[in-house]
Amino acid sequence: MITTIFSKSKPINFLIVFSITLIAFLLLPFKYPNLVNAETSIWTNIAVFILVYLTILLLNFIVTKNLLSQQNNYEILLFALFFLAIPQAFLDYKIVVSNFFILLTLRRLISVRSKKDVIKKLFDSGFLIALASLFYFWAILFFPLLFIAMLLFSETTVKYYLVPFIGLAAVAVLAISFSVLVYDDYFLVLNINPAVNFDFNSYNSVQFITAITMLLSFGIWSSLFYLKDIKKKMRSYRPSYKILFLACVFASVIAAFAPQKNGSELLFLFAPLAVIITNYIETIEEKWFKELFLGLLVVIPIVLLVL
């Protein structure tokens, strides 16, 4: 039944996804009151929720525009379910904003495939990653993805490899100028905080262990088939699929490096992982197994609600 509902893009799907995301958002302060900052205004919380839903719509746009799935809505369903499993992803509004900029970066980067306005797209990509890193420093780890993408798209023009640095520098200049004018400090706005933390004890709970196990097991299993099936895609679209897989890898590194491990750092994984799992679901021919696979992804977050 689940696969039937989401096998085609329909308005009702977006309403269902909105409802799941809203439940996850409303659940957080009741289930984890000790994690929520009581001083955060209701308007800030509403803005965070709206931005998360805009992120879902952006993910759907990227997938549909670049033919990264068979025109279904599995990816937005999975994205919302990940929030239901780990509602702590709402905790840090800066990561929510940073993740939104990273998705905009992926949109511009994947569009290099058309070979049109390449310089503009590379500048935008560098600019957007720089903006993302202003909100969450370790988002800068996505920067090497720009150069890998150029190699995947067979862009060998030397000047292209300089353009992302110009976008990065533009943000740095604007941020420093703003910092000097407002705070009388050169680097306050740059938010340079290269601290790392490899202590994963904060994940030592039934909820985190179950949710992370779900992401890892379903993600790794789907990735094996995802990578295998890339060669079956149209040649011009293969780099896009590889970029999404690499984005998932970089997001995993960011989660490992995160100085504060409260669950919000896992947000960078949600979008690329949702697309990877969606592609695997589309390859499953046995209807019962497809229902079971997707059903587990629905049931596990719901079970976590009562734990």
Rank of each mutant, 00 (worst) to 15 (best):
V36H: 08
V36I: 15
N37P: 04
A38W: 06
T40F: 13
I42P: 00
I42F: 10
F49N: 01
I50G: 13
L51R: 04
V52P: 07
L54K: 12
L54F: 15
I56C: 08
L57I: 10
L57W: 06
V63L: 03
V63D: 01
T64H: 07
K65H: 13
K65T: 15
L67C: 00
L68C: 00
S69Q: 02
S69T: 02
S69Y: 03
Q71E: 14
N72M: 02
N73S: 11
Y74F: 15
E75N: 06
E75L: 03
L77D: 04
L77Q: 04
F79N: 05
A80T: 04
F82K: 00
F83N: 06
L84F: 07
I86S: 15
P87E: 01
F90W: 08
F90I: 00
L91E: 03
Y93G: 12
Y93I: 05
K94G: 13
K94D: 15
V97I: 15
S98W: 03
L103E: 06
L104F: 08
L109T: 07
L109A: 09
V112K: 10
V112G: 09
S114I: 09
V118S: 12
V118C: 13
I119T: 04
K120N: 10
L122M: 09
F123N: 10
D124I: 05
D124Q: 12
S125C: 01
G126S: 02
G126V: 07
I129P: 05
I129K: 08
A130I: 04
A130T: 03
S133H: 03
S133C: 02
S133A: 09
Y136R: 08
Y136E: 09
W138R: 02
I140A: 09
L141G: 06
F142H: 11
L145D: 06
F147P: 00
F153R: 01
T157A: 12
V158C: 02
Y160E: 02
Y160Q: 01
Y160A: 06
